[in-house]
Nucleic acid binder design. Structure first.
Lengths: 189, 189
DNA sequence: CTATACATGTAACTAGTTACATGATTTA
DNA sequence: TAAATCATGTAACTAGTTACATGTATAG
């Protein structure tokens, strides 16, 4: 499992509360990972037990107290150990593939509509990621260290979304050729 | 969840035992899904309770009896319903991305070695999938029905592996430029 | 005599999702 | 006055992994 290690990476960059970590996840790991706040709170608790992070209560004016977590020496050692350890390439479970395989047993028009929805989703993701690339990394050549690593993960997100959009395009072309009336929403007679 | 529905697709194509389903999964859904036999047995049991599949014990000579499962009318209806229902694009959780983001906190040489391992894995998958494409689908133009759908899922696998190999290549180039000694195993002085 | 294929399962654990619960402050 | 943001959690459920358990037949 990598959630602990993703949290350790985030805490090495900057200490923070569970809530802050959940928001950072939405932004910075979101290309490849979504974690709910419940999961993060639970995992932080376990990590305290393991000695990987320390926790300090910070009283705030006007707001509920927050618990600030930071990585310990043990946590840093564990992260380094995990990074060096070989890991299985993660399997990409994909529901759309199951729907395609089963297309003969469903409504062809609905399948085309579903693929079109997924295409729109991936194209939108791709546009967002490309905008981040353009705005935050205009000169990628000179990058080093954490900035480079952030950029490289973003590149992974871009390449994956590109592949998915390309696949959806192939799917739409083939499925529409197979069932020309399927997703014709042009209104023509 | 799509495991039930993946099983329904497989059983529509051909009835079979839990064991056979597990093997078919390894072959035919493997581009996007891995399911262990334990998971399949457990899920089949639940599907019998739901009335989606029927089960018949077949005594065999020389071998343990097998239970042959087949999709019921209800199962076929459920599959059609699920195929038409919009689904969220599946998130692709990726441990390698976490390692890249955390590369500054680990051994750079180990990170490069890990990326190289993943590149080799994806390149091998890609070669296998391309060989299947060449051998089983030499003329993709005329395909229709289930053969077409099988081919389209294979195409998805190919595009994903291509994207991953491309990403690994970018990673290797950038990380090796950052740490030239990191993964030099050429033996040169 | 060892490994692989055939054939089915249980038990315990780990990970992830959904729903519920509370309560203050700021912005539209 | 409704929604969003800040802030933390519990409980129940669903899904997936790992380890264990049993037994036959065939191929090398």
């Amino acid at each position: 499992m990598a959630l602990e290690h993703a949290i350790l990476v985030s805490l090495q960059e900057r200490s923070g509360s569970g809530y802050e970590l959940a928001r950072r996840f939405d932004k910075s790991f979101a290309y490849f990972w979504a974690a709910s706040h419940q999961q993060i709170y639970r995992t932080l608790k376990r990590m305290v037990d393991l000695g990987w992070v320390g926790c300090e209560s910070v009283p705030q004016e006007d707001r509920p107290d927050k618990k600030v977590y930071r990585a310990t020496g043990e946590g840093r050692a564990e992260l380094a150990r995990w990074i060096a350890e070989p890991a299985e390439p993660s399997a990409q479970r994909n529901d759309l593939a199951v729907k395609i395989r089963g297309a003969s047993y469903g409504d062809p028009g609905e399948v085309v509509a579903e693929v079109a929805r997924h295409r729109a989703h991936h194209a939108e993701r791709l546009a967002v990621y490309r905008e981040i690339e353009r705005r935050d990394f205009p000169r990628a050549d000179g990058l080093t260290g954490q900035r480079l690593h952030q950029y490289l993960v973003l590149r992974g997100g871009i390449l994956m979304q590109q592949g998915l959009v390309g696949w959806c395009d192939e799917l739409l072309e083939s499925l529409r050729r197979e069932h020309p009336r399927g997703a014709d929403e042009s209104g023509r007679p």
